[in-house]
Design a protein around this nucleic acid. Structure first.
Length: 398
RNA sequence: GGGCAGGUGGCCGAGCGGUCAAUGGCAUGGGACUGUAAAUCCCACGGGCGAGAGCCCUACAGUGGUUCAAAUCCACUCCUGCCCA
C-alpha cells in the first residue's frame, strides 16, 4: 500500500472535482481498504470512451487495493437516471436489462479487474424495501431541494413533464450507498447532484458521507456534446480497431490533449513534447489514435489500423479487407448488364431505392475507381463499388 | 371535478380547408475543398414506378365523421402542460 499522499494525488489526477479531499485523506489514514462504489446504468449494452474515463479511475482504485463494488442499477434502471435529460426516460423491462448485461460485463473486463470486482444488483435490497422504509427515505429530502437540481428546474419551468418516480432516482441511488456504507463513489461530474444527495442522506442514516470522485465528461466526436450513444457521437470500446481509429481521427483538433489525458495513460509532459515536435495536429492525432486502439485491441492491431488508415484515408487506396457482397443472379441480365440501383437495394447497401438513386445522382458511386452516372453498368469481376468517400464493397456473383 | 392551451417528419418548430410529402433550423447523407478532418460552398433528405416531365401509395397522436377536397373543421378517445377546486 502506498502512502496516503501519493494515493490522493493519483486519485484526484484528471478528476473534475472531488468532494472533498480533506475527508478523503481522513478516511485513508483511518482505514486501509475503502469501500468504493460505482453504479452503472445497465440500459446500455456497449461502453464508450466517455464512460471508460470513469472505469479507468475505478481500475486505479482497484490497483490501489481498495474494495470495489460495481452496482448494476437494475432497479434504478426501471426509473432511468434523469441526469442531463430533458425528457422522461422510457422504462426498461427486466428482460431487456438482463440482455444488455450479457454483452456489457465482458466489455467491462477490458478496463477493470473483474476478479477484484464485487458485482451486485441494487434490486437485491431496493426491491425488498418496505413502504415504511421508502417513506422514511423520502421524508429525508424536500421537494424544494429536489427542484434545485438544474434539469428538474428547467423541465419544471418550461412546463415539461416530470414524473414523480423520477424524483425518487437520487434517493434510491443514495440508498445504495447507505446499504454498502460506501466510502468513495465514482462517476461523471453530471452525477454531482445525485452525489450531494447521497452524502446528505448518508448523514441522515448516521453514516459518514462518501467521497464523491467526479470525472470530466468527455466530448464526443462532434467535439461539442457529451459522448453518448443517443447522439451517435461515441467511440465504443468494442468497436473494430479500424473503426475506432477512424473515429478518433475525426475528433476536432482542440480535443487532442483532452483525449490524451482522459483516455490514455500517457503523462501530460510527454504530450506537450509531441506538440512541440509536430506542427501538423494530424500527426499527433495519429499517435493518439494508435495509443487508444492499442489499449483496447493490442499493439499489433493498432499498428495495422494505422497502416490501413494511411492507405485508405490518406492515399485513397483500396482497403485490405473489402466486404464481399453476394449478388443474386437475377440482378444480372443476359447481356451481363446490372442495374446498380436495384443491386444496392437488394443487397442492403442502400435502405431504399430512393436512397440509392440519391447516391447515384450526387456522384457518390464509384465502380472500380470510376465515378458512374448511369444506373445500368456491365458486370465483370472484379466489381468493386465505392459508396461515398470510403465505403468499399466487392460484389460477387452468387 | 371545472376551465384553457397543446400533440406535425430523427429532433425543434411553422402551417390551421385545396396551391402540402408539408416553410425554416438542427442532425444526417452525397459532392467540391482539405490533413481523416474542421471551416466554407453546393445538393439531397417518406416510399414505389419512370430516361424524364411526371404519376401513384403511405404519413401531421388514435378512431369515427363533415366535405368534391382535411395536418387544417366536428365528435369521441388517449397523452402533455397551465389555471381553478
Amino acid at each position: 500500500m502506498q502512502n496516503t499522499k501519493e494515493q490522493i494525488l493519483k486519485i484526484i489526477e484528471n478528476t473534475e472535482e472531488v468532494i472533498n479531499v480533506e475527508e478523503l485523506e481522513k478516511k485513508l489514514t483511518k482505514k486501509e481498504k475503502l469501500t468504493v462504489k460505482l453504479g452503472i446504468d445497465p440500459t446500455a449494452n456497449s461502453i464508450h470512451l466517455g464512460f471508460a474515463v470513469v472505469l479507468r479511475k475505478f481500475r486505479l482504485l482497484q490497483d490501489l487495493g481498495h474494495e470495489t463494488f460495481l452496482i448494476l442499477g437494475d432497479f434504478t434502471a426501471l426509473i432511468g437516471d434523469p441526469s442531463g435529460k430533458n425528457k422522461t426516460r422510457p422504462m426498461l423491462t427486466k428482460e431487456q436489462i438482463q440482455q444488455n448485461l450479457q454483452t456489457y460485463i465482458p466489455q467491462l473486463g477490458k478496463i477493470i479487474d473483474l476478479s477484484k470486482t464485487k458485482i451486485v444488483y441494487n434490486s437485491e435490497w431496493l426491491s425488498k424495501m418496505k413502504p415504511e422504509e421508502i417513506v422514511k427515505l423520502t421524508s429525508q429530502y424536500t421537494l424544494a431541494q429536489m427542484l434545485e437540481r438544474e434539469d428538474f428546474k428547467n423541465r419544471y419551468k418550461s412546463n415539461e413533464p416530470i414524473s414523480l418516480h423520477e424524483l425518487l432516482y437520487p434517493l434510491f441511488q443514495a440508498y445504495d450507498s447507505v446499504h454498502l456504507k460506501a466510502d468513495i463513489e465514482l462517476g461523471g461530474i453530471d452525477q454531482k447532484f445525485n452525489f450531494l444527495v447521497t452524502r446528505y442522506i448518508q448523514e441522515k442514516y448516521n453514516q459518514e458521507p462518501e467521497i464523491a470522485v467526479m470525472m470530466p465528461i468527455l466530448e464526443g466526436i462532434d467535439g461539442i456534446n457529451k459522448m453518448s450513444k443517443s447522439l451517435n457521437n461515441f467511440i465504443g470500446i468494442d468497436e473494430k480497431p479500424l473503426d475506432m481509429f477512424v473515429k478518433i481521427m475525426s475528433i476536432p483538433d482542440n480535443l487532442i490533449k483532452r483525449y490524451f489525458s482522459l483516455c490514455t495513460s500517457i503523462p501530460s509532459e510527454n504530450v506537450e513534447k509531441l506538440f512541440s515536435l509536430y506542427n501538423n495536429p494530424k500527426d499527433i492525432k495519429l499517435i493518439l489514435a494508435k495509443e487508444i486502439v492499442s489499449i483496447y485491441h493490442g499493439e499489433n492491431k493498432a499498428n495495422e489500423s494505422y497502416d490501413e488508415f494511411i492507405n485508405v484515408y490518406s492515399k485513397r487506396e483500396l482497403p485490405s479487407n473489402i466486404p464481399l457482397i453476394k449478388l443474386p443472379n437475377s440482378l444480372i441480365d443476359n447481356d451481363n448488364n446490372i442495374n446498380i440501383i436495384d443491386a444496392l437495394y437488394l443487397t442492403g447497401l442502400a435502405e431504399s431505392k430512393a436512397e440509392a438513386k440519391r447516391l447515384l445522382s450526387h456522384g457518390g458511386i464509384y465502380l472500380n475507381g470510376n465515378k458512374i452516372t448511369n444506373k445500368i453498368v456491365k458486370y465483370s469481376e472484379p466489381f468493386i463499388l465505392r459508396l461515398g468517400k470510403f465505403n468499399y464493397y466487392s460484389l460477387i456473383k452468387e
